[in-house]
Structures are given as C-alpha cells and as structure tokens.
Amino acid sequence: MITSHGRHPGTASQTGQAQQAAQAQQAAQAQQAGQAQQAGTAGRHRRLALLLGATVVLSTACSSANGSVTPVASAPPASSTPTFSTTSASSSVPVPASSSLITAASSSAPTKPASSPATLSKSSPPATVAGCQAVSLAVVALRGSGAAGHQYAFLQFTNKSAKSCTLTGFPGVQLLRAGAPLGKPAARADKPVTTVQLAPGRSATARLVDDSTCQAEKSDSVQIIPPNQTQKFLVPLSIRGCALTVDPVIAG
C-alpha cells in the first residue's frame, strides 16, 4: 500500500534503522578516537614521568659521590599530569662506600694549627751601677782590738748619695803624725777582690793591719783614698807607725 507521500512503510523503517546504525557507528568511532587520544596522552605522561625520575636518580647519584646530596627542584606538574614521588627513587640509590670512607676520614682527621713564627724576646740588659765617687762617700777609721804583735783598724766607706754605687779594690792608706807621713803607705794584702754595691746609706769596710812589733811612734791621723779615686780623706787614728797591710773592701 502506498501512503499519501508516495513511500512504502517498510522502506521508511529500513531507512531509519540505517541512519541509527550509521549514527551508532560514528559514536563508536568517536569513542575509540577519544580512547586512543587519552591512551596517547597517558603514554606521553608516563614517558615524561620516567624521564623525570631518571634525571632525579642521576642527580642524586652524582651528589652522593661528592659526599653531599643536593636537592633537585621538580617542575610544577600539569593539571592533567599524574604526580610522582621521587623519594623512593632518591632513597634507593646506593651511596658508594668509598665516598663515605673519604668523608669520614676527612671529618675525623685532626687539623694542625698554623704555627706562628717564633718570637725572640730580647731582655733589656741590667742597668749598670756606676762606681762610687769620692763626693758620695763618708769615710771614717775605727780602731779595732789588738792581738800579739798586731793592731787593727777598720776603714769604713758609707754611701751618702741618693743613688746606689759600687766600690771595688783597695783603698790607699798613709799614717800621719803632726801632718807629716809616718812610716810607709800600706801594702795590699794577697786577697781576692770583689765589687760591693752600696745602696744609699749602706757601707763597705777595708781592714787595716799594723805590725806593731816595731818601736815606732804612734800616728794621730790617717790619710785615706777610696778605691779607684784620687781625693784624700784625713781622719783621726792612733796606731804605731810600723808596717801596714790593707785588705780589699767588703760589704759591711
């Protein structure tokens, strides 16, 4: 039977089914294309992730060989890119044993301090004390006790200045009577000589020995010259004018 439009009902039904089949086939092809595109994108993402992981592994291995690990900043992930953790890759890279030993040896090796050049300190020489001048001395003659055939006197030199000074050696001695020499000047005794340092107010003494076995007259004074000086001191002293011997000055 033919409709008003001139088409057979069975023909229209077949045409509709053919269109639906075509549309279904197009939809399946579109779905397959989308799945293929997603698979390609996922494959690219996996390759990118593997490349990034290999870069981190190589960087960690190089840093471990030098004795220190330098963190590598990862690029920010894309919105559709899966996030991969690099912690397991970093921790799974073995550190060479030789670098650990070198690092331990370097840290435990003692550090030798830099030696500074030796400094030689020069000590200043001790100040030299000058010899006592005659004007700095007070001189007296003190009569001592006698012994069989000998008489003694002590010639005393006192530093009356404000500075220390020294005396060394023998004084010169000559007995006098009424201003005239009595006998010969005193001879020097065979005794060692020492230097005596006199602080202000301190004294040194020289012993005078008189061989009194002679029958000479007695002196009324004695002329004394301090050691290494020329000025004469005239002081009272009464002993026989026999042979005289004088000792070097000593402290006291």
Rank of each mutant, 00 (worst) to 15 (best):
A114K: 14
S212F: 07
A204E: 04
A75H: 08
I250K: 15
Q231W: 05
K184F: 08
F170I: 00
L50D: 09
G179Q: 07
L48Y: 10
P76V: 07
P185E: 03
S100M: 11
L155H: 03
I102W: 15
G169T: 01
A49L: 09
A105R: 08
V196F: 04
D247A: 01
V209L: 11
S107M: 09
A105C: 06
T11S: 14
S106T: 14
P171R: 08
P248Y: 06
H8C: 10
A18Q: 11
G241I: 04
Q20V: 09
Q231E: 11
K160V: 10
P126K: 09
I224H: 01
G10T: 13
S100G: 09
A104P: 04
L175R: 05
T103R: 15
S121M: 10
G172N: 04
A187F: 03
H5S: 15
P126S: 07
L120N: 07
A130P: 03
H150P: 00
L50E: 09
A42W: 02
G172D: 09
L101V: 09
S219K: 03
A148M: 14
I225L: 06
K122Y: 15
L48E: 14
Q37L: 08
L167H: 00
P71A: 14
K232M: 06
P125E: 02
Y152D: 02
K232I: 02
S115C: 05
S13K: 15
L155P: 02
G16F: 12
Q14M: 06
D190Y: 04
A141T: 01
C242H: 09
A162G: 12
L142C: 01
P9G: 08
V135N: 14
Q37W: 03
A36R: 08
D211M: 11
D190S: 07
A251P: 00
A130H: 12
Q25E: 13
I2Y: 07
S4Q: 11
S90K: 15
A118G: 07
G169R: 01
A33D: 07
A141L: 05
M1V: 08
L237N: 02
T55L: 10
P110L: 10
S212I: 05
V139I: 06
A18P: 00
A114N: 10
R240D: 02
K191Y: 05
Q31V: 04
S64Y: 12
S68M: 14
G252T: 01
H45S: 11
S64K: 15
C214I: 08
T205Q: 00
A33E: 10
Y152C: 00
A105F: 12
T87D: 04
G179C: 10
D210L: 02
Q17C: 01
A251V: 03
T166N: 03
Q17K: 13
S92H: 04
N66S: 15
H150W: 14
A130T: 07
K160P: 02
P71W: 03
T3V: 03
I2W: 11
A65N: 13
A78M: 02
V56S: 05
G43P: 02
A24G: 05
V173Q: 04
P126M: 11
S79F: 06
Q26N: 05
G241T: 03
T15S: 07
A141F: 01
Q229T: 13
P117V: 10
L142Q: 05
R46G: 08
A42F: 08
G34P: 02
G40M: 05
L142M: 04
A27C: 05
